[in-house]
Design a protein around this nucleic acid. Structure first.
Length: 588
RNA sequence: GGGCCGAUAGCUCAGCUGGUUAGAGCAACGGACUUUUAAUCCGUUGGUCCCGGGUUCGAGUCCCGGUCGGCUCACCA
């Protein structure tokens, strides 16, 4: 069937050629867009227009667009065309285009074709009535309504007042329903864009979000830069990279998972304020909030702290919301999100403690307490043990487990953990109480605090993150969750960092940068330990970056924002794929 | 990767506990109509029921396997 429809259109295309008309021409320039036509001067009705033509005072316009609807009532045909701006109604009437002209149109023009038309603007009775009823202003282009055409009896020649510029061989989907199958919408995005105003709106707003960010940062003397996508080692974030191969150098490479480390090297180089808007690749699953390739913006400002970036972020998001949606209050999933500064600021420990009914836990430094709060509020009962294992060194970890009667003869670390867990999982509460007590007794305060907060962080991600609706800065993150952030002066367990959440999503992550090369090396080594433990996302030691830090990086604050998620907010999109022109799909 | 759900005409969908030749609207094709706007009216065409097996006298429908997708959990900032 599809073949028949196509054959029909192929035949029409050949007919055009036979008539000496190129069905894929490129010599027609519109004088205005559909939107301009809707705003332009127009005749009040057809009689007025007729008078103007007779006097040779009609405004002749050329318009182009894709044929979206055709309403044929015999001697007159209404056609709607759509260009990049909006739609415009064309009116083909035998009086102006002649019998031959009308016949030409009916025989050769299909829905989906791209055409160019010449005529003059007027308003139909229906349009005039609609406008009076407050249904909006709309005009019609009367095709062939020109002095040129009107001269001498049946002179009108269709090809001069209406032409096929591009013949479509494929029919458009149902004009009313469009494409309903989500897969079809993404695989045939070009078709989706033709029939779905929402799809077009989302891509337009995406562009405006980025424009708005650029304008904002350029105004603050940030320099836009570009750094490599192809890298030897992927750093700057905890994620698994995509692997690729560089033939000429016969070496394996990875696609970047963040722009962070290179941007900081530019700050070392003295650029002081830089940002990059670019594609990031993470070899992870897809979800409502995740696409394996996504666009981030990272910005770095010397002589600033994460506190300064809170202010910057508030101003920037407010500007984006107003620029893109016209209002600081944005509707998302039926609820308001208010981007008017200032935003709520809350400490991680306080947020989790309050949520669990345990009061303010901002000053928490007890692993016993941390485990107690985490148990039952993270993914599984083993989860707290895994988290403990990540933060402790191997020696500390095995020592603690052995003390609790761990399986001494187990092979690897993993086996050891599992065997110990098997023995105690019947009563996790008692197990964790004893484990926590042991760790509390053996670690200095700063390490206990770090671990306790690390446990609360897991609770936050699991239970609280998705409930934060209006923009909220969460602060006081544990140091082990932040290998590139600067320690808080006077509280070395936490880092000067915030993450911004809105509509249940993380939209930004920022911190005062760690500029101490010795501390940084230590943090990398802790990451390397996690990697050795089998954590594929853990970061590797980046010697080039460390060498740069040794040259000296000015005190700096840096931030990353997920552009796609921001666009989701600004377009009321439920999934990240809605705001990506061509989201990743499995091979069909 | 796990669980649940789905795939029928170019598009949007219906198709009952398995039972004649799988239907509708839009689109297409033929016809009527000189101000329509999801135009209307008359007529016609169009199907690998996702793929492959199986059960059955008989499968779009039931079973098994697969492909692709959606939701969700896990992973993941």
């Amino acid at each position: 069937m599809e073949e028949n429809l196509r054959a029909e259109r192929l035949r029409k295309m050949e007919d055009l050629r036979k008539a000496g008309l190129d069905p894929y021409t490129n010599d027609f320039r519109p004088t205005m867009t559909a939107a301009e036509a809707q705003r332009a001067r127009f005749a009040a009705d057809e009689d007025t227009l007729k008078g103007a033509i007779a006097a040779g005072r009609e405004d002749i316009q050329l318009v182009t667009g894709r044929v979206m609807t055709i309403r044929d009532s015999g001697k007159a045909v209404f056609v709607t065309i759509q260009d990049r701006t909006t739609t415009l109604q064309l009116y083909l009437k035998v009086d102006y285009v002649g019998e031959q002209g009308l016949e030409f149109f009916k025989k050769h023009v299909d829905l989906g074709d791209i055409i160019g038309a010449m005529g003059a603007l007027f308003q139909t009775r229906v349009q005039a009535r609609n406008e009076k009823d407050g249904k909006g202003h709309e005009v019609t282009l009367l095709v062939g309504a020109t002095k040129l055409q009107a001269v001498g009896g049946d002179a009108p020649r269709m090809p001069s007042s209406l032409r096929v510029l591009t013949k479509a061989l494929h029919p458009l989907p149902d004009k009313w329903h469009g494409l309903a199958d989500v897969e079809q919408r993404y695989r045939q995005r070009h078709v989706d864009l033709i029939v779905s105003p929402e799809a077009r709106m989302k891509l337009r707003r995406r562009a405006r979000v980025i424009q708005s960010i650029r304008a904002f940062l350029d105004g603050r003397e940030f320099l836009e830069v570009e750094t490599p996508v192809l890298q030897d080692t992927a750093g700057g974030a905890t994620a698994r990279p995509f692997r690729t191969h560089f033939n000429a150098l016969s070496q394996d490479m990875v696609l970047r998972i963040a722009t962070e480390l290179h941007l900081k090297r530019l700050v070392v180089g003295g650029l002081e304020r830089v940002y990059e808007i670019g594609r990031i690749f993470r070899n992870e699953g897809v979800s409502r909030k995740h696409n394996p390739e996504f666009t981030s913006i990272e910005l770095y400002q010397a002589y600033a702290t994460y506190r300064d970036l809170m202010e910057l972020t508030e101003e920037m998001l407010h500007k984006i919301a107003v620029d893109v949606t016209g209002s600081a209050v944005v509707k998302y999933a039926g609820k308001d999100v208010d981007f008017t500064p200032p935003y709520r600021k809350v400490a991680l420990g306080d947020l989790v403690g309050t949520h669990l009914g345990a009061g303010d836990q901002s000053e928490i430094d007890s692993v016993v307490k941390g485990l107690e709060l985490a148990l039952g509020h993270v993914v599984s009962d083993v989860e707290p043990l895994r988290l403990v294992q990540k933060v402790l060194s191997n020696d500390e970890y095995t020592a603690a487990l052995k003390e609790l009667g761990g399986a001494v003869d187990a092979g690897s670390e993993m086996d050891f953990s599992r065997a110990t867990w098997e023995r105690h999982k019947a009563d996790p509460k008692a197990f964790y109480a004893r484990l926590g007590k042991l760790i509390d007794a053996s670690l200095p305060r700063e390490r206990r605090r770090d671990l306790a907060l690390y446990l609360l962080f897991a609770v936050f991600e699991h239970e609280i993150e998705h409930t934060l609706w209006n923009p909220t800065f969460v602060v006081e993150y544990p140091i082990s969750a932040s290998p590139l952030a600067r320690r808080r002066d006077g509280d070395p367990a936490i880092v000067d960092r915030f993450e911004l959440f809105s509509a249940g999503m993380e939209v930004a992550n920022a911190f005062s940068e760690l500029t101490d090369p010795v501390d940084q090396r230590g943090r990398f080594e802790a990451q390397a330990r996690m990697k050795a433990l089998g954590d594929e996302e853990a970061q590797a030691v980046d010697e080039e970056f460390l060498a740069a830090l040794e040259v000296g990086m000015p005190p700096t604050a840096g931030e990353g924002l997920g552009i796609d998620r921001l666009v989701m907010l600004m377009t009321d999109s439920a999934t990240i794929r809605e705001v990506i022109a061509f989201p990743q799909l499995r091979r069909a």
